[in-house]
Each structure stands twice: as C-alpha cells, then as structure tokens.
Deep mutational scan, measured.
Amino acid sequence: KKPMSASALFVQDHRPQFLIENPKTSLEDATLQIEELWKTLSEEEKLKYEEKATKDLERYNSQMKR
C-alpha cells in the first residue's frame, strides 16, 4: 500500500472520534472538516504526524525494494 501523508494520518487518527461526536455527518464532510482542522495546527503539532509519515514512506520504500 502507498505511503500516507502527514495530513492523511491526522485524518485517520481523528475521524473515528469525530464521527462519534457528529454521527449525522457524512464521511466526506467529516474528512473535509478534519482537513480544515489540520490546517490550523501548529508546526509542533504537525511534526508528530510528519514523523509518522516519514516512517511510513520508509516502510513503503523498503517494501518496494523486495
């Protein structure tokens, strides 16, 4: 599977709780709203997800070399 971006990892982490809190929201709308939240994060908060994305890219690259 392809590597995930930092923002995609953020959405993946936050979507389940968002949908619990907003059960009538469609998956598409939830994703859009969480992506807007991503844009408001500080660089420090984004760094955690950027590090995860880097590790996921390394995983992807090692799988492609096999």
Rank of each mutant, 00 (worst) to 15 (best):
L47S: 13
L37E: 04
L41Y: 02
Y60N: 14
L41F: 01
Y60E: 10
T25N: 07
S62W: 11
S62D: 10
I34T: 03
Y60S: 14
K52N: 05
S26H: 04
E58M: 08
K55V: 13
S62Q: 13
F10T: 01
E43R: 13
R59D: 15
R15T: 10
R15H: 06
L32F: 14
T31N: 03
N61I: 03
R15K: 04
E44W: 03
S62N: 14
E51W: 05
A53W: 00
F18S: 03
L27F: 15
Y49H: 01
W38E: 09
N61W: 02
K65D: 15
E44L: 05
E35K: 06
K2W: 00
R15L: 13
S7H: 09
Y49A: 02
T31E: 09
R59A: 14
Q63K: 14
T40K: 10
E43V: 13
E35L: 08
W38F: 05
M4F: 10
R66Y: 12
K1Y: 08
M64V: 14
L27Q: 02
L41E: 05
K48P: 11
L37W: 04
L41C: 07
L41R: 07
A6E: 01
L9C: 07
A8E: 15
K2S: 07
E35V: 02
R59S: 13
A30T: 01
F10R: 01
K1M: 12
Q33M: 05
S7D: 14
A8V: 03
Q33V: 05
Q63T: 12
S26Y: 00
K1E: 13
A8W: 04
T31S: 04
K48L: 11
L9Q: 14
S26V: 01
T54V: 10
M4S: 13
S62F: 12
N61A: 09
K55N: 10
S42Q: 05
K1F: 02
R66A: 15
T54Y: 04
E45F: 02
M4A: 12
S7T: 10
E44S: 12
T25V: 15
K52R: 13
L32V: 10
L47V: 14
D56H: 08
K48Q: 08
S7I: 15
M64Q: 13
A53Q: 02
P3C: 04
A53I: 00
Y60G: 12
L47G: 10
L37I: 04
E43L: 12
K2N: 02
E44M: 03
L19F: 03
L47H: 14
K39Q: 14
P3K: 04
Y60D: 14
T54C: 08
V11A: 10
D13Y: 03
L9H: 09
E51A: 11
A30F: 01
S5E: 13
T31W: 00
T40S: 09
W38R: 05
D56P: 03
E45R: 07
T54W: 04
D56S: 13
P16K: 08
E43A: 13
S26P: 07
L57D: 14
Y49V: 00
L41V: 13
T40H: 11
M64L: 09
K52C: 11
S26A: 06
K52G: 07
W38H: 14
L27W: 07
K65L: 14
E44P: 11
E44G: 12
K48C: 14
K55M: 12
L41P: 01
D29N: 10
N61D: 09
K48W: 07
E43P: 11
